[in-house]
């Protein structure tokens, strides 16, 4: 098949899967509903199940889609940024920073507080996650020659510090453990429309920026010097991509906790099917990541129903074996 046609076919299949997953997400849940109820809600404006279909299930599925898309896009960007197929949105320390922020907020007894219409926990998660990456970036800029490896290693080290601080807080306050699990393994239990409204514009903006610089990312894969010599403003491109990917990951973590493996594996799936060209990789990764997470969330809330599993368990359960397969395939 021609590459162009393959991409279109892939996108169509994805959209079909997404439509089916969204439909299933609407139909399945703790309260038994029949397809007829859904039909009545949509086509006869029957308000009986409005809260369940609209505010609970649709809202949650959409948030899962947006977060999955954000994480996958962030991962696709960082894998190109580090020229390393093993990079993911959390490699520079966003996740550890964000979860530290959230747990810090919890342990100060501010778990229920809110500001500017957002929960204080989300704001803490976002703020600490983003600050940590900024600090990592500044630290790695101190050498005369910027090395991507320095940034990567500084990020890993800073992430480890944040993680151990999180563990320390949990150790001190064992009563906040249950809430902390939410941040450490991820969940969409608390989904509401405000969060959908918060993630959507960021995702849209970041996707536009990524698409605008997609050709530059292709050049970056050849190495910084080569990209420069082909005419790309590498320093600016790198700064923008790092900011965009960090923003995506921090926003995602702040609404749903750390959901691992989506950002790592989804870009790989897409790359295997449509090739490494970032002009197509970014958008299709977002679409795939979103769809994948809608499905995972569906599983997370139905497998042990009525108990909900943290979604991080599901993504890792699917993601980790695939990751191992990839590792061995690359030999």
């Amino acid at each position: 098949m021609k590459p162009g046609r393959k991409r279109v076919a892939f996108a169509i299949v994805l959209l079909l899967i997404l439509a089916v997953s969204l439909l299933l997400s609407l139909m399945i849940g703790a309260v038994r509903t029949s397809p007829a109820d859904l039909w009545d809600f949509f086509f006869h404006k029957d308000q009986t199940y409005r809260t369940i279909f609209f505010d609970l299930r649709l809202c949650r599925a959409l948030l899962a889609f947006l977060v999955g898309a954000s994480l996958a896009l962030s991962g696709a960007i960082l894998q190109g940024y580090f020229q390393n197929p093993m990079a993911d949105p959390f490699v520079v320390g966003v996740s550890s920073g964000a979860s530290f922020g959230a747990v810090l907020c919890l342990s100060m007894g501010l778990g229920a507080a809110s500001a500017f219409g957002f929960s204080l926990q989300s704001l803490f998660a976002f703020g600490v996650g983003f600050s940590l990456v900024s600090l990592v970036y500044l630290l790695s800029q101190t050498q005369a020659v910027f090395k991507v490896e320095t940034l990567l290693l500084t990020g890993i080290a800073a992430g480890a510090v944040a993680s151990s601080l999180t563990s320390f807080l949990l150790f001190l306050r064992s009563d906040s453990f249950e809430q902390a699990v939410f941040w450490l393994l991820g969940s969409f239990t608390l989904a509401d429309w405000r969060q959908v409204g918060m993630v959507a514009p960021y995702l849209a903006l970041c996707l536009l920026v990524a698409q605008w610089l997609a050709k530059d990312m292709n050049l970056l894969v050849l190495g910084d010097e080569m990209a420069q010599s082909l005419g790309s403003p590498v320093a600016r491109v790198r700064r923008t991509f790092l900011a965009v990917s960090t923003l995506l990951a921090a926003v995602s973590v702040s609404v749903s906790g750390i959901i691992g493996f989506v950002g790592l594996i989804v870009p790989h799936w897409v790359r295997i099917i449509v090739g490494p060209d970032h002009r197509h990789l970014f958008g299709l990764s977002a679409l795939t990541g979103g769809t994948f997470l809608v499905l995972c969330d569906l599983l997370a809330r139905t497998v042990l129903s009525p108990t909900e599993l943290p979604i991080g368990i599901i993504t890792a359960l699917f993601g980790a074996p695939f990751f191992i397969y990839l590792l061995h395939r690359r030999r």
Partner: peptide, 13 residues
Amino acid sequence: AFVPQIADLTFEF
């Protein structure tokens, strides 16, 4: 235009 020394490519272009 610059022709660098041969290096490995991370992704399969």
